[in-house]
Amino acid sequence: MISVLLTLLLKRSSSIKFTEEEIVAYDKLLTAIGEGKLITYDLNYPKYRFLQYATSKKEYVLHGSNNPDIHEFEPRRQTLYNNEWTKAVFATTDSNWAIFYAVFNRSQLIGNFRNGCIIRGKSKFHYFSLNESTMKRDPWTDGVVYLLPKDTFTHSGQGKIQFDEWISEEPVKPVGRLAIDLNDFTYKNKVAVHKDNESMVKTWLLYKARILVGSLKKVKVDQVSS
């Protein structure tokens, strides 16, 4: 029942299967990373696939940021997905969620924004929603996704439903970083817009309907333009 509800309300992500050619290319790239250096990415595969492969190796977690020059992450006081306070470095094993934080320009934020990657069994569900005031400011930029060593991180939640959220109470130095722009964000056309003072429940209930309406409007605009 819970999985059905999540499927109805949120965007269920497709499972990723890597080809042998991809695996060879990704492994070669991973062997070249180190000391937090910028990764030279000249592969024809989307960057989110490489990042997802990196986390599948169980050695890395990801952190997206607008700041391209972070040499060490320090634990900071902030809230977990359940609004409980903690002092930690945050990361995820989901590439699309990390990419969102790389390209969303937080300096343009007015009020609130809502997003998440929820794990239920072997399935993942995403949602991305910005309020009207923020969306009017074209809140997108270039950024970086950092690859962090996973050894000091623990999953922040427990139970049958969890956010793909990992925390480290110790400082963490990145082992690599990948430049990201909006074209790398595969969910860019699935970002909904909610009212400034809207409740979280309403945002969830209307998320898929809003992205569907947005897609239909885009199709009409493209037809008119052509």
Results as ranks from 00 to 15, higher is better:
68 P>S: 13
68 P>K: 09
69 D>Q: 05
71 H>C: 02
73 F>M: 04
75 P>D: 10
77 R>T: 15
78 Q>K: 15
78 Q>H: 15
79 T>K: 15
79 T>D: 03
79 T>S: 04
80 L>K: 14
84 E>M: 04
86 T>N: 13
90 F>D: 03
90 F>Q: 01
90 F>N: 00
92 T>V: 01
93 T>A: 07
95 S>N: 02
95 S>F: 03
96 N>V: 13
97 W>Y: 10
98 A>D: 00
99 I>E: 05
101 Y>C: 03
102 A>T: 06
103 V>N: 00
104 F>H: 10
105 N>C: 06
106 R>F: 06
109 L>A: 12
109 L>N: 09
110 I>Y: 02
111 G>N: 07
113 F>I: 09
113 F>Y: 15
113 F>P: 00
113 F>Q: 05
114 R>G: 01
114 R>M: 08
115 N>S: 14
117 C>Q: 03
118 I>L: 15
119 I>D: 09
121 G>Y: 06
125 F>H: 12
128 F>D: 01
128 F>V: 08
128 F>I: 12
129 S>L: 05
130 L>K: 02
132 E>F: 01
134 T>N: 07
135 M>H: 09
137 R>I: 01
138 D>T: 08
139 P>K: 03
141 T>A: 05
141 T>M: 10
141 T>K: 12
143 G>F: 03
145 V>R: 04
150 K>N: 04
150 K>M: 10
152 T>P: 04
154 T>A: 03
154 T>W: 15
154 T>K: 14
155 H>E: 07
159 G>H: 12
164 D>H: 10
164 D>N: 08
164 D>E: 12
165 E>D: 05
